[in-house]
Nucleic acid binder design. Structure first.
Lengths: 217, 217
DNA sequence: CCAAAAGTGTTCGGCTTACACCCATGT
DNA sequence: ACATGGGTGTAAGCCGAACACTTTTGG
């Protein structure tokens, strides 16, 4: 990469880590880079930030572009520097949580964006692996004291589905009775009254999040 | 190739919130702005980030410049945008914790940097008030699950001194017995064996931090 | 002997953890 | 009737919160 000789300003890149949980697996959205550096590598979606809007708006725009989803949980993560020894740049990173059944990924591109299991990522461009690790750490903490999981689930869901989401992110199994007591005590979710029959077993009661805005407990 | 425009890049500003506790009062280091915008207003120390080093290094350099101190706790806070409607810029903010008895503030300048009680701040430039509020919130949380207070205190100190630091930051008084039990149970500090006689009362035992590196408990 | 800050234990309630069986349904 | 996931309670230990008096010293 050639440095920019005409001005001393670093480039401001915007990077978004988009998580989803599908089938007991935490996944992250990756695209293929079509230009150097790291051409052909998988990378997090992002772009250059022009500075004429709020960072959060630019990140939201990128998120809508990739998933078609609005009103999802989005939070600034960290700002990285020294991405490339020859390119003065900073990367402002965000992470988002989306419901994969509602996401509509871009189909047009040469290399279509795709979900990748966080547990088995390919080699990534720049420091993208470190960014994902950082996002995952933050997400694991946030699960414990916020309701952000709302952004990963549909409007109604069973407690078992919710528990599987928690387990997929935390990477360990949870006790069913304790999980239910815990989540109900915090009033994160409430009964809807509806149930869902899904197979040769007792139907599950459906719950909804008390709030679909971020709440710190 | 990443485009290399001669303009269109936002400015990357670096801002440092430097906290100290002196005499039961949480204070922050402010300087007077000598140029527009906000000329004459108090503001947080900072500067323009060139991009040819790590952000943390640039922040450390600024911190040394203002206080003469090295090896203090420094952490990235948040990256703000839309500071000024006419100036495309982002501000990457850090916060630091220093011991005021060791800090040597700049004396050369027209408007000398000075400590200001966080509880009674003057009007500040840009969004600096919001940055300080954000830093304070983060600091209050960090006190509860890390040892970062080490950076505010000298090598040895009494538990009463430590408690006053916690109380000054949290903005409420703590129970002496519970505070001691709590801090000792977490092994944040340990007895040195020395004591200090300071007046017409029983001498205090001196403690030291178990680690002077950041530790998450 | 008095003033001042240092130092110290116990009780209670609530939260977390571990743990095993019955329920409702479809086939 | 049986296989499948849904749904439930209790006991033990740990932690945080409330609360008041004795100790050691200097003047």
């Amino acid at each position: 990469m050639v440095p920019c000789p005409t001005d001393g300003k670093p480039l401001v890149a915007l990077v978004v880590v988009i998580f989803t949980v599908e089938n007991r697996s935490l996944q992250v959205l990756l695209i293929r880079r079509s230009a150097p550096p790291f051409q052909g590598f998988w990378a997090l979606p992002g772009g250059v930030f022009g500075g004429h809007e709020a960072l959060g708006e630019a990140a939201t725009r990128r998120l809508v572009e990739e998933t078609g989803l609005q009103d999802v949980y989005l939070e600034q993560l960290y700002t990285f520097s020294e991405l490339d020894p020859h390119l003065p740049a900073v990367a402002v990173t965000y992470f988002a949580l989306v419901n994969h059944t509602q996401a509509r990924l871009q189909q047009r591109r040469r290399w279509r964006p795709a979900w990748h299991a966080v547990s088995s990522l390919p080699d990534l461009a720049f420091n993208n692996r470190a960014i994902i690790d950082y996002a995952l750490t933050r997400l694991r903490y946030k699960l414990e004291y916020t309701n952000v999981a709302y952004s990963l689930l549909p409007d109604t869901f069973t407690l078992s589905e919710l528990q599987r989401v928690y387990e997929s992110i935390l990477g360990r199994s949870l006790d069913k009775r304790n999980f239910r007591k815990w989540i109900l005590a915090r009033r994160i979710v409430q009964l809807t009254g509806a149930t869902r029959s899904e197979g040769a077993h007792r139907p599950a009661r459906l719950y909804a999040f008390t709030s679909r805005e971020p709440v710190i407990l």
